[in-house]
Design a protein around this nucleic acid. Structure first.
Lengths: 107, 107
DNA sequence: GAATCATACCTAGGATAACAAGGTATCATA
DNA sequence: TATGATACCTTGTTATCCTAGGTATGATTC
């Protein structure tokens, strides 16, 4: 039932490379504050994904700021697809229960 | 991000009273095996909800089997509404990110 | 020029939900 | 008679997530 932070991070990085702090703000903004993943959640996720070869990072200096930019690897893209599928299947299944038992068996 | 088992249990009990083992099977069936909550998950949830006054239980003998039937209280119904709202809001927010950044700010 | 806020990185530690794995007992079936 | 299905339960572990803290720079405000 877990893995949502990882899924969101991967999805954001699919469009363009981003740095950690930026990702935290983007999630806040795009969900209208509904999802507020702290840095304490996002950074470990980024480190874990990079360790697994799903991301690659590059430190860059921008306006006197040191940023670590992350981008998706092929493996990361694959992982994004897998997680998205799982998520869709899971929420669909839960939704079926929430709507009511009538849709139970089409067999 | 947690509380899905609780939500599903409450939703099933909204329609009719059920016993624990039955709930485990119902979740398996209605989600077509996608969600397979074990008894080790469902029973503690039932006990917790009853302790909080969201459920009331009644032990009954049926065909030589001892079953504990649970039904929703007013408080449990309230809790179901709240959890459903949270779940809808959360999945909607995540979906917005998964679909892409274009829907970010309508302001 | 001092203090505060925003930016930008990081980690250690704790809470807790979810699960696996076990245990008991009865009834039906093979 | 042995296995599987029914029906209840708890203990202990794990993984995830979050809180809370720490550092440092630049911008803004007072």
């Amino acid at each position: 039932m877990a893995g949502v932070p990882e899924l969101m991070v991967l999805r954001l990085l699919k469009d363009r490379e981003m740095y950690g702090y930026e990702i935290v703000q983007a999630i806040r903004g795009q969900t209208r504050e509904v999802v507020q993943l702290s840095e304490g959640v996002v950074y470990p996720v980024l480190h874990g994904l990079e360790k697994d070869g799903a991301l690659k990072s590059q430190r860059r200096e921008v306006g006197g700021r040191s940023r670590v930019y992350y981008s998706l690897t092929a493996r990361g893209l694959r992982r994004l697809f897998d997680l998205t599928d799982s998520w869709t299947e899971l929420t669909g299944a839960i939704q079926a229960v929430l709507k009511g038992a009538s849709h139970a068996r089409t067999i």
